[in-house]
Design a protein around this nucleic acid. Structure first.
Length: 475
DNA sequence: CTATGGCACGGATT
DNA sequence: AATCCGTGCCATAG
């Protein structure tokens, strides 16, 4: 509440304004950045002023908003999220590619994988030695569409005149960043890293690592008997391994869009959905359970965009032949800044509602998701539902757990049921068939049809009952 | 005969 | 107006 500036004074005056606000609203951060840069270089009336920092806590803020952290040092209500706009443009800087590695071939950068490098770099940069960042950048520039490393390590080591071990060290950090296994030279290695990570928190089938190492081919062709023979295990154990892998691991890190685990084994479908950086970052103040959420809405630029006051002044002395042009530039600059404010305003309000409503989801995961429709939220916010759709579309959000998910997941109608289903299957003693799952679910208060359970199962990559036979026979 | 997946339809959502 | 999603019916595999 406190941090909302009186933006209501901005009325959509012209259709141009409306149209532009709309178009800005649907832009995710990275594209917004391009848009802003384009506008900035085209229009002399716009300028980017120094980043604003809160004088006390030094957070980078966008615009002259009061720093939400320092305004109220006592947070009366932990439910109330702290929301602010930041302008940490550096996250989105393609410097790694452009400035530090000027003579790298750019061809192997395909559009669909272009922002994965930035996303990863963002995570690991703070922990990296400055001189290692160049190596990281080099590695990340050479990811293929699948998120795997496309060039041999030795080549990179050679390029930098460094021992391979050094490069491997950096690569290891990359591999442990969020799309787990990203940058691995092979699917095998990616799988192994994911496996290693999972085994810390969860039980994994025995010989799983060996299956990946030596039997991946058999595995992907579902030739269980042969696999079983190779590893000297039973066929059902082989199936168990297969189930585990297809359910929990992903050989192609770039395909792992979080929350939607459709496995695409060989067919390299490059869907539009590649979420690699976040438009909104949610963290927990002080890691405490009941501390307020901190919602950072990322403006993808350094500093604050505004109309250049000098330009405004200069308008009076404009040479007659330029006057008209300057005037229209000024107009447009004004419009653009206002539209941007409006976009941010809408976004802030949206996140405020969401952060309160989905607090449990944000903190405690998928089972706590409140099913809500965009329409309902639009109603509450008093905006048109199409506005909501635009605001949500294509945006991503980073949770305190560092997971990045599409904002649309906040409006998933079936996620909580699917997680309930997952849990039922995980805890089942012997495989339940779909009909039995239906009754278990309805006991839990989820009335769904049998056919629907089948679909959810498929979505979660859970095999049908007869294929997940004798579930936990190992050990 | 039973459990599942495919196709398609209608209503809700965007 | 276009798309998504839950569901029913039917074919098929085991």
């Amino acid at each position: 509440m406190l941090l909302q500036r009186p933006v209501h004074s901005i009325r959509p005056l012209t259709t141009a304004h409306l149209a532009q606000t709309m178009s800005l609203l649907e832009l995710p951060a990275l594209e917004l950045r391009q848009k802003i840069e384009a506008e900035l270089s085209r229009n002399p009336a716009l300028e980017l002023v120094e980043e604003c920092r809160c004088p006390t806590c030094h957070r980078i803020l966008y615009g002259n908003q009061p720093c939400p952290f320092c305004i109220q040092s006592s947070y009366s209500n932990p439910e109330e999220p702290i929301i602010y706009l930041s302008s940490r443009g550096d996250f989105f800087e393609p410097t790694a590619k452009k400035t530090t590695l000027p003579d790298l071939p750019e061809e192997n950068l395909t559009p669909s994988s272009e922002d994965l490098p930035h996303y990863v770099m963002r995570q690991i940069a703070p922990e990296l030695l400055p001189e290692d960042r160049t190596i990281a950048a080099h590695l990340l520039t050479n990811l293929d569409d699948d998120g795997l490393l496309a060039v041999p390590i030795s080549e990179i080591a050679y390029y930098h005149h460094l021992p391979a071990a050094r490069v491997e060290h950096v690569l290891r950090q990359i591999q442990h960043a969020d799309p787990l296994g990203v940058g691995s030279p092979s699917p095998q290695e990616a799988l192994l890293i994911q496996l290693e990570f999972l085994s810390e928190s969860r039980q994994v089938p025995p010989k799983c690592d060996q299956a990946i190492l030596s039997g991946l081919d058999l595995l992907s062709h579902h030739r269980y008997p042969e696999l079983a023979k190779l590893l000297k295990i039973s066929v059902s154990q082989a199936k168990e391994i297969s189930r585990f892998i297809s359910q929990n691991l992903n050989p192609y890190p770039a395909h792992a869009h979080w929350g939607d685990n459709h496995q695409t084994p060989k067919g390299s479908e490059n869907s539009v959905n590649a979420y690699h950086f976040a438009d909104v970052i949610i963290t927990c103040l002080h890691e405490l359970e009941d501390s307020p959420l901190v919602v950072e809405i990322a403006m993808p630029i350094h500093g604050t965009l505004r109309v250049n006051p000098l330009f405004r002044e200069a308008l009076h002395q404009a040479p007659p032949e330029k006057a008209e042009l300057w005037h229209s530039d000024l107009e447009q600059a004004n419009l653009f800044v206002k539209c941007l404010q409006q976009r941010n305003h809408t976004f802030v309000r949206l996140m405020q509602k969401l952060a309160i409503l989905q607090r449990n989801f944000i903190l405690h995961g998928e089972s706590q998701l409140q099913p809500i429709t965009r329409a309902a939220l639009a109603e509450e916010l008093g905006v048109h539902e199409s506005t909501m759709s635009r605001a949500v579309a294509g945006k991503t959000i980073q949770l305190p757990s560092r997971r990045i998910i599409p904002l649309a997941m906040f409006f998933d109608r079936s996620l909580h049921i699917r997680t309930a289903l997952k849990q039922i299957v995980n805890e089942e003693k012997l495989p339940l068939n779909d009909a039995q799952i239906v009754s278990r679910l309805s006991e839990l208060g989820f009335p769904v049809a049998r056919r629907t359970v089948a679909k959810y199962r498929a979505m979660e990559g859970i095999l049908p009952a007869h294929l997940r036979s004798s579930n936990h026979v190992q050990a």
